[in-house]
């Protein structure tokens, strides 16, 4: 993409990104925020039983998605990856179909919201079992290496809590031993439901664990999409070029309760949240782009209006879809017809 730095504006650390791509990241972040709010809104209206937000993760995911190469790389996400899902090409309609559990959802209403799957886009199907997907990500990377497909890499994401799981350690170790093309992105939002980071690990940074596996570990500012992009792009370039895995830890925050089933007032202070809110990555990045002259106030308004309209349209379109039929419960158990007793 052409670099179109506007002359005469304030210096911006853009990590080589064109204006167009900077604005694309902002748009992704605004859309995340809008869709997140919509999920919680629909839940409060009693229209959907559950929603889970990624508020506070917008910058991480917009930045990481920008480093991802569509059509080449594979995403093995976790359930708080709305922005990555959008960033690699999933549509708001798909997201809302899953929130409403409609027939148009890829899993046909089977999966919990936020448990994406999209084989066409290279988004691997995941379960809710924390860190269960990390081994699969390593397997995909192993397949790339086996087939000699240089230039491709896997993005495996988790929260910081997930790094306590044996399967996360086993995955990182396996990938390290075999020098596989994979990036482990840990979105450290300080909390695993009610459990703070210091009850998960003794190190200050998840990335500090990397040397124990013989891997590079990188910490980046997860409230900055540009910083996250820069760290992720380095890691992707290394992986695609045969340089092996990297652990990238993006420091961010979970602004909302864990999900609509959680109430964070029982375990963290309002002051802490207010403090982090001052760093809210969405208005902050808008401001950065305005000050650098990449967008003006009118463009900001336009972008906000666009994502609101897009979200409204997707909401109406998804809500109008039918539920999957009850009979669909019985399909795709195995290939073909499935009966535990054979005639």
């Amino acid at each position: 993409m052409a670099k179109t730095t506007t002359a005469g504006t304030r210096d911006l650390d853009r990590a080589g990104l064109s204006d167009e791509r900077l604005v694309a990241m902002l748009r992704n972040m605004l859309l995340q925020r809008q869709l997140d709010n919509r999920g919680f809104q629909l839940n409060r209206q009693g229209k959907i039983p559950f929603a889970l937000g990624s508020e506070g993760h917008e910058a991480v995911q917009a930045g990481a998605a920008m480093a991802f190469e569509r059509g080449r790389d594979v995403l093995v996400p976790y359930y708080r990856d709305l922005g990555l899902a959008l960033g690699v090409g999933m549509s708001p309609f798909e997201i809302l179909s899953s929130l409403f559990a409609r027939q148009t959802d890829r899993s046909m209403g089977r999966q919990f919201p936020n448990h994406y799957t999209n084989h066409d886009l290279g988004v691997l199907s995941i379960s809710s079992i924390i860190a269960g997907h990390c081994t699969h990500a390593v397997g995909v990377a192993a397949a790339f290496k086996y087939r000699g497909e240089g230039g491709r890499a896997v993005l495996c994401t988790t929260g910081e809590g997930a790094t306590s799981q044996g399967e996360w350690h086993e995955s990182v170790n396996y990938a390290a031993v075999h020098g596989l093309p994979i990036v482990f992105l840990v979105q450290n939002n300080e909390w695993a439901i009610s459990t703070p980071q210091d009850l998960q690990m003794r190190v200050a940074n998840v990335a500090d664990k990397a040397p124990g596996y013989g891997l590079p570990g990188v910490v980046c500012d997860g409230f900055s999409p540009v910083a996250t992009y820069a760290a992720m792009n380095d890691a992707f370039v290394r992986a695609r070029g045969g340089g092996g895995p990297t652990i990238v830890e993006a420091k961010c925050y979970r602004f909302l309760s864990h999900s609509t089933d959680d109430d964070d007032r029982t375990y963290r202070s309002r002051e802490e949240i207010e403090e982090r809110r001052k760093m809210d990555p969405v208005p902050r990045f808008e401001q950065v782009l305005i000050e650098a002259g990449v967008i003006d106030e009118a463009r900001r308004k336009q972008l906000r209006a666009d994502v609101l309209r897009e979200t409204n349209e997707a909401t109406d379109a998804a809500e109008a879809q039918p539920y999957p039929p009850a009979e669909s419960l019985y399909t795709n158990v195995v290939a073909g017809d499935y009966q535990p007793w054979q005639e």
């Binding site: 559990a101 669909s328 419960l329």
Partner: peptide, 17 residues
């Protein structure tokens, strides 16, 4: 319960299970 791996999220799939 039916011999399928899990109940689905959508209401008809849960009710069917």
């Amino acid at each position: 319960g039916p011999d399928v791996p899990a109940m689905g999220y959508a209401l008809p799939l849960e009710e069917e299970f």
